[in-house]
Design a protein around this nucleic acid. Sequence first.
DNA 1: ACTACCTTGGACGTGTCGTCCAGTCGCGAC
DNA 2: GTCGCGACTGGACGACACGTCCAAGGTAGT
Lengths: 199, 199
Amino acid sequence: MSEAFTNPIRPLPQDMASRIDLAAQVFADNGLDATRIDDLAKATGIPRATLYYYFPGKEHILAHLLSLTLRQMTAKLAAAAAEPGTGRERLARLAREHLVFIGAHGPTYRLLFAELGRAASLVDIAAGVDLAIVSPIRQALRDGQDDGSLDVADMSAAAAVVYGAVLVTGMQHLLVGGDRDQVIMRGIGTPIARRGRRS
Amino acid sequence: MSEAFTNPIRPLPQDMASRIDLAAQVFADNGLDATRIDDLAKATGIPRATLYYYFPGKEHILAHLLSLTLRQMTAKLAAAAAEPGTGRERLARLAREHLVFIGAHGPTYRLLFAELGRAASLVDIAAGVDLAIVSPIRQALRDGQDDGSLDVADMSAAAAVVYGAVLVTGMQHLLVGGDRDQVIMRGIGTPIARRGRRS
DNA sequence: ACTACCTTGGACGTGTCGTCCAGTCGCGAC
DNA sequence: GTCGCGACTGGACGACACGTCCAAGGTAGT
């Protein structure tokens, strides 16, 4: 993520930094466009002129919030990936951590993807997503291949598959609830050639 | 999809119906918000006033286009699902058809998800996606369970996983290209308990 | 006290939206 | 042929949000 864009124009004072978080809810409720700067000003208690003093525009406020979330996610998943175990076990942990994170940051996470299309044009959030999510997955797959716990032909393709599986599962959780992440690791096998070991 | 929203206010004459398709490219290039009504008017050759005569606003034009695409996809996937074979084979066919469709309708498909967040608030595109994509998958899984070609514990969860896997794989294809849909059906097994049969 | 930066209210110009309406056109009815 | 009606369209309009600008008031360091 290029700092020039994901961060405010000027160093954000502490009291602003904490209050700007309140904007997340507004964005989450309304989406990027339906959110007016005045709404953000009202929600955060930071006057409009001050917001413009620190940010070039509302997309940048959103980008700032998203990059914060992304940074948290990167840390969480990196930690999950760092723990010992086979590649397969680490992959499972990653999936679970990821789902937990989605559950914990529901609105922001949804926003991350709902608005990714446009926000990404200002910020390379896509790169951040790759760094935070896909690359740990890829690494776990690679390790699993090496230590024999997984059998992966094409790392990138497999990583995309895993990512998609977790992402959509997480999104579904956000909407309906329920807990069923076992499917991801358990797979859809033939009844005979089952290979247990879930989550 | 509730017809009241996904369709224009009035029956759209033939010549309009064909020309409105040209709006897809504009939307695809700029996204929903960056697209101005005047751009659409210019691109389609339909005057602004006439666009408003038929549609309440630009979101509805987009929704109209998306629902067309969705309808095509429903047909394609339904056809794929209708062909004979085990549940497992049908599932593979669905995945492949889906990827083919993504490849064929790249820009529109990307739009479908980029703008789904907002468009969905006006139109129940989410329901359309479910009808077109998830529900055939679910059915194939169910059939596979019944005929013994698959082993699925939770249909809905598994369907979400399959959907996510295909979706993200397709999106990746849109961005980088390449052909690697085998992963989806082949799975990420242990080297020993392989169960062949790909795509 | 002076200087430099932070902070804010409020006015402003700009662009797009969606509405409105009056006028034109094509066509079937009489 | 001309009347009536709905389709269609150009152009003007008011509303609203954006982002800019500035001047006044604070605050802090020297």
